[in-house]
Amino acid sequence: MEPMKRYRSVLNRGFSGVNPVTYGNEDCEPGHAFGYAVREYYLIHFITRGKGIFIRNGIEHSLSDNSLFLIRPGERTYYAADKADPWSYIWIGFDGEASGGLLAEAGFTDAQCTGRFPRVRHIFEEIAEIRDQEAATELLLTAKIYEFLGRCAGAGQAVRSYPGYHAARACDFIRTNYASRIRITELAELLHLDRHYFTRIFRQEQGCTPKEFLIGIRMVRAAELLCSGTLSIQEVARSVGYGDPLLFSRIFRKKYGVSPREYRSGG
């Protein structure tokens, strides 16, 4: 095998969540080493063939094909290809404010920096095939990083089931779908929960019932739309989930003490 290293050009788009900064692949020469050194970003190497060693915090990890190693920003690390069977790998580097938390959710805690991941091999092979210097390059790389993190998280964690988690999912669903008809029974079914149990844990976590939370979200948004002055009362009602303007006006008055029309006029 002829040694080969191929860098790709990445435009730093500054994506806030996960932001790719480098990618490429290398067929290493026997004994080829890098380090000790530090990086400014997260860097993952996925080994496609051969073997080598990775040293972090004084601990040496022997790695082979379908394994990967993660380098975190500021970590002092060393890695080297085997002299008899040197490794080939695909790498991708990224930063972004969500990166550390997402890596932890995917199982890469401070103590976990290596592992065998044959189930994600195709993701890295697809990364290596992404053409650089194209309009979609960075978006495609970002999508692959998220896919990698999702695959690892999905394989390593049981389905979450605790009151705060269910309440948070319900709140996010309501915030996104308040303009649609939402039945609390259907929301409980969506979360695979008994309606009464769901209502109880929601009140425990949020201090109100799911219905009260929904009405609160709708009324806040209705007040914002009324202040904008561009929609009719009927359109505002429809935009926050009420097909009946009279019902909307009654609930709005109960919340704010004035009718939607009076609220708009500053009354």
Rank of each mutant, 00 (worst) to 15 (best):
I92E: 11
F15S: 08
L70S: 10
V10K: 05
A80T: 11
G17D: 10
A33Q: 02
P30G: 13
K51D: 10
G50F: 03
P30H: 04
L63W: 00
L102F: 10
R72G: 06
L63H: 03
P73F: 05
H45G: 00
G31H: 05
G14H: 03
I71V: 15
V21A: 01
G50A: 14
E40H: 00
Y89A: 08
L103V: 05
E40S: 12
I44R: 08
S67I: 00
Y89T: 12
T77G: 00
T48S: 14
F54E: 11
I53G: 11
I71M: 07
Y42W: 08
G14L: 00
E75Y: 15
D65K: 13
F46M: 12
Y89I: 06
N66A: 11
L63F: 01
F69T: 01
S9M: 02
D82G: 04
A81S: 15
G101R: 14
V10R: 04
E97K: 12
S62F: 08
L103C: 11
N25F: 12
G31C: 12
I90G: 15
E75N: 12
E26W: 10
K83A: 11
E60Y: 01
I55V: 15
I44C: 05
R39V: 14
N19P: 06
Y36M: 05
A84T: 10
T22D: 15
L70V: 03
F46C: 04
C28L: 15
G17F: 05
R49S: 12
N25D: 09
A80N: 04
G93H: 04
I53Y: 02
D85P: 00
A84K: 15
S88V: 05
I47H: 00
L68F: 06
E97R: 10
N19C: 03
S99L: 01
E60S: 05
P20R: 03
R56W: 03
I92R: 05
F46A: 02
I90L: 13
V18A: 04
R39N: 02
F46I: 11
S99V: 02
K51Y: 03
S99Y: 01
E75K: 00
Y42D: 04
L11S: 04
S16K: 12
Y41M: 01
G96M: 07
G100P: 08
P30Q: 14
I71T: 14
L63V: 00
G100D: 15
G31E: 12
F54N: 12
A98N: 14
N25L: 09
G96V: 05
Y42R: 02
L68D: 11
G17N: 11
S88L: 00
N12P: 03
L103G: 09
F15C: 07
V10L: 00
